[in-house]
């Protein structure tokens, strides 16, 4: 293990964040085997049950058996425990895919804009334009035009993130291209694409990973907001956002319907942000030095 990796793993924030995320990922992947039922199934007999009660539950197979409702049921009689666990799938998937897509496209644009001045002038004005569109408004427009689906939601969230990544990568490239080792590569005849891939990209990875975690956290939040507003996925697919949206109606009588998805959402975003902060502290030499002097 390289000393860098060891240093990162010693950081408390990184440890906490990654542990929480690993546990959540395992829960999301193993959701069908964790005592859940079909999250879309509604048992009209058991509407608005409190968390922790044991009821006679009629499942999707029409068999009635006793079942302990860990988080209660919603106003349609759906098991919130199952919905929250399956909802983790959507949130994590959206977070990961959005950050991968935004990083990939943003990095490509950023490399080009940072290294080629002509491209820079055109591309960055385009990015400025993109940045002036409010993320939620764009999402509303896209969902209205293309219909609500996971892909639409991901595209709608990823587009406003791209200019942010592009700006970051561009500024990194602008400073790295002035380094003497880039001039050294030019003078030994290294072609531009190779300089970008072998020298510029590896030296900007660390801040990009950090940015990736922030993109991920904001994507999870925005997805929840869209679902809460009813603009995200349809309610057959449970997400933390639409569970909370349904809980809003019965909030005064059953506030815990909102608590459980809310707690999971908060915990996830907190874990991702902590991971990002920890990575920044350990990977960025500036923060590193300050830490050493403390």
């Amino acid at each position: 293990m390289s000393p860098n990796v060891r240093r990162v793993l010693k950081n408390g924030a990184v440890r906490f964040g990654s542990t929480v995320l690993i546990v959540l990922t395992v829960i999301a992947l193993l959701a069908p085997w964790l005592g859940t039922t079909d999250p879309a199934w509604l048992d009209a007999v058991n509407m608005n049950q409190k968390p922790g009660v044991t009821v006679d539950w009629t499942g999707p197979d029409n068999q009635t058996a006793p079942r302990t409702l860990l988080m209660g049921t919603d106003s349609f009689g759906r098991d919130i425990y199952s919905r929250v666990l399956y909802g983790a799938r959507v949130s994590l998937l959206v977070g990961v895919i959005v950050s991968v897509v935004a990083l990939a496209i943003g990095t490509l644009f950023g490399l080009l804009a940072g290294y080629f001045r002509r491209v820079d002038a055109v591309l960055m004005r385009f990015m400025d334009g993109l940045m002036s569109i409010p993320a939620i408004l764009l999402a509303i427009a896209l969902v209205a035009a293309l219909g609500a689906s996971l892909t639409t939601v991901i595209v709608a969230i990823a587009i406003p993130e791209i200019p942010r990544v592009t700006r970051l990568v561009r500024s990194l490239v602008l400073s790295i291209r002035e380094e003497p080792y880039i001039e050294a590569a030019i003078s030994v005849g290294t072609p531009v694409w190779k300089i970008l891939l072998k020298h510029v990209l590896p030296n900007s990875i660390a801040p990009m990973v950090v940015q990736g975690t922030y993109v991920c956290a904001s994507a999870i939040l925005i997805e929840a907001i869209l679902s809460f507003l009813g603009l995200g996925l349809p309610s057959e697919i449970p997400t933390w956002g639409n569970i909370m949206a349904e809980a809003r109606v019965v909030f005064s009588s059953a506030p815990y319907n909102m608590w459980f998805p809310g707690i999971f959402l908060t915990l996830t975003v907190l874990a991702v942000n902590l991971l990002g902060d920890g990575l920044r502290d350990t990977l960025d030499p500036k923060f590193n030095k300050r830490g050493a002097q403390r």
């Binding site: 380094e179 003497p180 080792y181 001039e183 050294a184 590569a185 003078s187 030994v188 005849g189 290294t190 072609p191 190779k194 072998k198 020298h199 590896p202 030296n203």
Partner: peptide, 30 residues
């Protein structure tokens, strides 16, 4: 190929993410 340069700052003229050997053979490989 016929004209080469050695820079001032030894801490910035080598790519920190590139092994020394890779840096030296980069030119010939090109």
């Amino acid at each position: 190929k016929r004209i080469q340069i050695v820079f001032q700052d030894p801490y910035r003229s080598l790519d920190p993410r590139q092994r020394v050997g890779e840096a030296i053979i980069e030119g010939p490989l090109n």
